[in-house]
Nucleic acid binder design. Sequence first.
DNA 1: ATTATGACTGCAG
DNA 2: TCTGCAGCCATAA
Length: 105
Amino acid sequence: MKTGDTFERIYRVVRSIPQGSVMTYGQVAELAGMPRAARVAGYAMAAAPEDVPWQRVVGKSRKNRARITLRDSLTADIQRQLLEGEGIEFDGGEIDLERFGAVQP
DNA sequence: ATTATGACTGCAG
DNA sequence: TCTGCAGCCATAA
């Protein structure tokens, strides 16, 4: 694949997340080949094309737990609704990665 | 080339 | 339990 296609690599990973599963920004970055570029994954999501299921990428909270970390409450609410629509359950505002975390290759 | 920024994280207070 | 702050890394200006 081409070199310097950071965003594309990130989008490819996100597109690989199956419906009903979620992945943290850190995981996405790692699978995209940038282990410590979690923030970059977020930066990429802000500019994500429509064919990218950005709602399946969430922020890591504590061990095996994730939460929506969007600053814009309106968009954050939309993400939560989309995820709930896919069957993701929010327990105390958080997602259990043991149950909904995407299986990594 | 340098500086500012952000949909992150993990640890400290 | 919750908020704050210092590292992190690529993009945008």
